[in-house]
Design a protein around this nucleic acid. Structure first.
Lengths: 232, 232
DNA sequence: TAAATAGTGTCTCTTAGACAGTATATG
DNA sequence: CATATACTGTCTAAGAGACACTATTTA
């Protein structure tokens, strides 16, 4: 290549929209930016990509260093890449955004101010409450998650195994912000090939009573056939 | 930030999987790599991202410089970003891949050896026939296009307006590599809100005869409700 | 005329949604 | 007991696919 054209080396970073279900709500982990220009705003946990480090590895490291959580309980999926020249006023930084789904509640970092907020609320915040273009990333992440619940088995990544179908339904209800008919939901999940697999044992009811529930774990399918379509 | 950690500035590039329909087949534009290490292989048209250039702008420029085509007839959509440290043996290069859909046939570049090949065949080529990790990008691009035809109106980007429903059906048949019932396809498209809109005029039949067809153009919807689901 | 393509009608089968009814827990 | 949750049964309406049929062209 060796172009004489004005080709620069950009900084490359990874930013992670980490989601979890807490108290029946979808929540997002935010951290205080390490940048005086952005003080008073919130940002997604992010790290620069190191030499010899894959993008996925950077995403894992960002979660590990900026929150207590990480490891195999977290499902990471690349979202999209944000590269507007002026997105970071200090320098040209191209950011690869990831969606992270955890079965456990967020663990705030020791060293950095963090916040755990309902994802739908954060997606509706004014842009200026976020650093950089992270407001757009949050909106895109929530939209992507909502869409992917329809045609992939991603919802199970937000639950610890084994889970009940009632718990799986609350994940869909939390992400989509709508209530679903328990009977029809159950039938749909059961008739979707390899979505879930029943396992031994029975889950005790909650403090408000109710019949004990069967337990399931993820069934190995990634794409769902047929899909779990939601009405508009 | 200013870390003492081994943080480098990677080169950032954009690679474009440019697709079009030619003679009822989905085709892909390939170019000869400008890299002696990759001689004898094919690559996607790609360019380094310049200072002050957005990723979308780089994708447009890659198409303009490495093929004759570009401009508003081409729909560009970001696919995903490939950043394995060793994907380019010369240097660390993070590549943002784009999917480009054109309503017109590919126009090979004047200055560079190019090839236009059926996309499904290219996706099945052995990895070593491609430079870098472009074999994976091609597979991902085809998969993404096939999936997006189900729940978006992307198919219309592969046709010049106005088009007939028969032409729209051939797009689906070419991308999915299956034949569809004309009657049911027509009904599905017509009942999907804002997918297409009828316009004035009638298209003359082809050389093999047939009744003249009504003309349509894209209806403004991006997501399709209900989706155009395919069986498997 | 035959063949090809556009477009309509209609039948069957499957599925989604509504909701009634049963099972088993908590208080 | 009432209430909450899990799960099953069943009715109805809508959609998908198969395919017969009509409409209008080329050769």
């Amino acid at each position: 290549m060796s172009g004489s054209a004005p080709v620069s080396s950009c900084a490359v970073a990874v930013d992670v929209a980490a989601m979890a279900i807490e108290d029946g709500r979808l929540t997002l982990l935010l951290v205080e930016p390490d940048d005086a220009l952005q003080s008073g705003r919130w940002s997604l946990p992010g790290r620069r990509v190191r030499d010899d480090e894959s993008l996925d590895a950077t995403a894992h490291r960002a979660l590990a260093e900026l929150s207590g959580s990480d490891g195999p309980t977290v499902l990471l999926e690349q979202l999209r890449t944000y590269g507007e020249p002026a997105r970071d006023p200090r320098a040209r930084v191209v950011s690869v955004a990831y969606l992270a789904l955890s079965a456990r509640p967020h663990i705030p970092s020791a060293g950095r101010r963090t916040a755990v907020v309902p994802a739908a609320e954060a997606a509706a915040w004014p842009v200026k409450r976020f650093a950089y273009d992270h407001a757009a990333i949050v909106v895109d992440a929530l939209e992507r998650l909502r869409a992917k619940l329809e045609y992939t088995s991603l919802a199970t990544a937000l639950l610890e195994e084994p889970f009940t179908l009632g718990e799986l339904r609350t994940v869909y209800e939390a992400v989509w912000d709508m209530s679903l008919d328990p009977a029809n939901f159950r039938r749909k999940v059961a008739s979707t090939e390899d979505f879930v697999r029943e396992v031994e044992g029975i889950a005790p009811p909650g403090p408000s009573g109710g019949r004990p529930a069967r337990r399931y774990r993820s069934g190995g399918a990634t794409g769902l056939h047929p899909a779990m379509l939601r009405d508009r």
